[in-house]
């Protein structure tokens, strides 16, 4: 049993990553990654929400009628997202402005519905909690990698602090403004998938 719990936590972080293997929750993963700070806040929010909603649904799993389960799941998730959004507005207002609609869009984040349907409806609360944490961390991991590259090359900063020293600029180094724009996020995720699949050869298609 301990082994299975361990798997539930570790598997989604690398081998069965929700973003690059299951291709879930792409929308927000791309939109919030132009800087590291919002990416980390988003990763943490999603981790908390997936874990909590997994626990709640797994506790309710035997009482939910099958026909209306999607609506029940959506209401549970929406309530949790509302709480997180209000907390962010109260304690981290500037980040919540930066994330704008994407906090609300956690509700329709496919990672949540995917995990609730595929895992929490069949497993106990503790396993579901670990599965939620694992998937949240896997999501956060990809967000941080993409945001790191985009912020470093796009504006020469990390967490808003200047990293590329001034003398580089004096010798003609320029920030790559293209990194900040939307298309580069897609291309970078494509490259992350490329690297991930060259390491894990079993995942390659045909």
């Amino acid at each position: 049993m301990a082994n299975k719990n361990n798997e539930a936590l570790k598997q989604p972080v690398w081998l069965n990553n929700p973003v690059v293997v299951q291709i879930l929750g792409i929308c927000s993963a791309l939109a919030v990654t132009s800087q590291l700070k919002p990416a980390i806040v988003m990763g943490l929010s999603v981790t908390v929400i997936v874990a909590m909603s997994n626990v709640i649904i797994s506790l309710l799993r035997n009482t939910i009628p099958n026909r209306i389960r999607i609506i029940v799941q959506l209401v549970v998730v929406a309530a949790l997202v509302t709480i997180v959004s209000e907390i962010l507005k109260a304690f981290a207002y500037d980040v919540s402005v930066q994330l704008s609609v994407y906090i609300g869009l956690i509700i329709t984040n496919c990672i949540l519905m995917g995990r609730l349907e595929a895992f929490a409806m069949q497993n106990g609360p503790w396993e579901s909690f670990l599965d939620g944490i694992g998937n949240g961390l896997g999501y956060a991991f990809i967000l941080i990698v993409v945001a790191f590259v985009r912020e470093l090359f796009g504006s020469g900063k990390l967490f808003g602090f200047q990293v590329v020293p001034q003398w580089c600029y004096d010798h003609g180094y320029l920030n790559n403004g293209f990194m900040i724009m939307a298309p580069m996020a897609l291309i970078l995720v494509g490259c992350v998938i490329w690297i991930h699949r060259s390491i894990n050869k079993d995942l390659q298609e045909k």
């Binding site: 490329w194 390659q204 045909k206």
Partner: peptide, 22 residues
Amino acid sequence: PKPLKGVGITFITVGLMALAFQ
């Protein structure tokens, strides 16, 4: 290339399309 097949190349395609839409 093999590791890019399927999802990977699709992402890059969408990126190029987004570039055009810019």
